[in-house]
Write a protein that binds this DNA or RNA. Structure first.
Length: 581
RNA sequence: AUCCCCGUAGCUCACCUGGAUAGAGCAAAAGUUUCCUAAACUUUAGGUAGUAGGUUCAAGUCCUAUCGGGGAUACCA
């Protein structure tokens, strides 16, 4: 258990022992740094419960704390805030404990088996900036959950079926009408047809087809027909679609890899197809499906609803399945194959009603047992500086590849060409660019809509990924130059070095909070604070030439701890650390 | 029309379960390099938290109303 959590528990017990029953102690960083490191805010609340003067209660608590050698300067302020300062001895002992075993600065969770669904890439569509949030947040939460002790299975859940397949095939038919896929008389093996397409062309095909179909009813009709044929298992279309999938998946995977996002499963919506008849049969037999307006639906209204809750359409009036059908079947298959304790979905907030419907439906129909915990974690929309969804000049959403390219050009310009080996320069510039991209994306709270301004990245100064990489690399370089490993905290100046020490102890609470919230904003904020507190300290002191040995090994220890913590955080955030920059 | 989210410094965002004097970065102004990587550091300036009520010892945070912006609302995904 982490040092602060342990301390909090002990304080709670101390307060209970003097007769105040307390549910959860408020032991937090003091908002008045002039009065103490931490504050206890419970005297005011206890006062109303026990009908006593809050200052009297605060005095009683403070009197005990004053006898505790772990604290100095225990004081009461305002209506009954108790401020306390950690003693130098306690602070040093705590840091040495972490030096000895880094896991003493982590609070493990009760392990659960969790399936995570994030990414949201669609086959044959270019990965664009709108996909960043799902990938970045999902990936980081996955890494965090694993780090704190959960077992996690992640699935990209490709959008690999549906209208876009019809769109793309119809467009290919126009561009390459002589292909055997479209030859009625062809009787060879469809899988052996010689046809390849570049990811770039593929990326441009869907938007073209989309516009064409929107403006032409006959074309849209064709798209619908092809989609239906494909779903029924039409051999030529299936073979062509598989080919497209292959090209597209390879391309998508490469971009995901660039932003350090990987999945345990690269399944798609179509993976659940074998389960669809089973699920529909199950729903029919147990009378969960209702005919409504020619479609078959699951009614999911509840008495307590104060707003309209539309039923979930499972089978369309034309007999076809749709997204929701595949969602139910996917859930069914996931439960059958992996039996998770929880399933977490990460997608745009606009899908929240839809997921509410799906969750209700699977619970009502017992596809999911009552024990299975389902979570939808929505995130805000990424907008351009005009407040509308991010676009490039020609009206298309900017692709991730393009964005990474632009950023890499900027970081290349600023690269220290003398320090970084020639053969590492390209790779390093790209890593720095991606750190800027990922870090900036993870700063806002998950649910906040945010404005994505490419101009913001051009400077690469201040609270950015490159700042963190630069600072962390500098720490590493310093440790290397020190040429010793006998780190131990035996003496601090109690100036900027103390601020760094206090920051280090906050790490475990931040991790716990981020996992609960499924948002990384506090972690991005924390690594910045920790790093900038270290940089202040670094600028005030000359560590390597410090003559007092106790001070020197203490400062090196501090450097090592910040470096280790930063490395861990960057790893969680999915940001890779270059050797030099 | 109903429901959900947002409104905080010029811009982009924070503020933990209600807690003391609302914080960062960018942009603006000034300064720091014979010395461990200056993508750094220090300092200044910038605020009636959309508006109006209410609850509370205490409200940016909770409740109500209202204005403004965005989103969702059965056969798209």
């Amino acid at each position: 258990m982490s040092i602060i959590k342990e301390l909090k528990n002990e304080l709670k017990e101390l307060i209970t022992n003097i007769g105040y029953d307390i549910e959860e102690l408020t032991f937090v960083e003091s908002s008045r740094k002039d009065l103490g490191d931490y504050q206890i805010n419970d005297a005011m609340r206890l006062a109303s419960v026990y009908h006593e003067n809050p200052r009297d209660i605060a005095t009683k608590i403070a009197d005990i704390l004053k006898k505790d050698s772990r604290f100095t300067n225990v004081n009461i302020a305002g209506p009954g805030f108790i401020n306390l300062t950690l003693s130098s001895y306690f602070l040093q002992t705590s840091l040495n404990k972490i030096l000895d075993d880094f896991t003493t600065n982590i609070d493990q969770v009760e392990p659960k088996k969790i399936m995570m669904d994030y990414g949201g890439a669609n086959i044959a569509k270019t990965l664009h900036v709108g996909h960043l949030r799902s990938a970045n947040i999902g990936e980081a939460i996955k890494r965090l959950a694993k780090y704190l002790g959960h077992e996690v299975i992640s699935d990209v859940h490709f959008g690999d079926i549906g209208r876009q397949s019809g769109m793309v095939i119809s467009e290919i038919k126009r561009r390459y009408p002589t292909l055997d896929y479209f030859n009625q008389d062809f009787n060879g093996n469809y899988d052996e047809i010689d046809f390849t397409i570049t990811p770039d062309e593929l990326g441009e095909i869907y938007p073209t087809a989309n516009i064409a179909a929107k403006n032409d009813e006959a074309r849209m009709q064709e798209v619908t027909e092809i989609t239906a044929e494909l779903e029924k298992g039409n051999k030529s279309y299936t073979a062509l679609w598989n080919k497209i999938k292959e090209v597209s998946i390879e391309d998508i995977k490469a971009v995901y890899q660039d932003i350090n996002t990987t999945f345990d499963l690269y399944e798609g919506e179509s993976t659940c197809y074998p389960y669809i008849p089973k699920v529909i049969d199950y729903l029919e037999k147990n009378h969960y499906l209702k005919e409504s307006e020619d479609a078959k639906v699951i009614d999911i209204k509840e008495e307590t609803d104060n707003s309209p809750m539309p039923p979930l359409v499972v089978i369309k009036s034309n007999g076809a399945t749709l997204y929701a059908t595949r969602e139910l079947a996917t859930m069914y298959s996931r439960i059958e194959r992996f039996n998770p304790d929880e399933i977490w979905y990460f997608a745009d907030s606009r899908q929240s009603l839809y997921f509410e419907q799906v969750f209700r439906a699977v619970k009502k129909t017992k596809i999911a047992s009552d024990h299975l915990k389902l979570g939808f974690y929505g995130f805000g929309t990424m907008n351009g500086t005009d407040g509308k969804p991010f676009k490039t000049r020609d009206g298309n959403v900017m692709s991730l590849k393009e964005l990474i390219q632009i950023l890499t050009e900027e970081t290349t310009k600023r690269l220290n060409k003398e320090r970084v080996d020639q053969d590492k320069q390209e790779e390093t510039a790209k890593k720095i660019a991606i750190s800027a991209l990922k870090y900036a994306d993870l700063i806002p709270y998950r649910e906040t809509d945010y404005v994505f301004d490419p101009q913001k990245f051009v400077s690469l100064d201040g609270k950015t990924g490159p700042y963190l990489l630069y600072s962390t690399i500098r720490m590493k370089s310093l440790l290397y130059k020190a040429e010793r490993k006998d780190y131990a905290v035996t003496k601090l100046m109690n100036k900027s070095d103390r601020t760094v020490a206090l920051e280090l102890l906050k790490f475990p609470q931040i991790l716990t909070k981020c996992l609960e919230e499924k948002s990384l904003n506090e972690l991005t904020d924390y690594i910045y604070k920790l790093t900038s507190s270290y940089n202040t300290f670094y600028n005030e002191n000359r560590i390597l030439t410090e003559e007092n040995n106790s001070l020197k090994i203490s400062w090196l220890a501090l450097t090592f701890l910040v470096y280790t913590t930063n490395k861990k955080i960057l790893e969680i955030l999915g940001i890779s650390l270059p050797e030099k920059m």
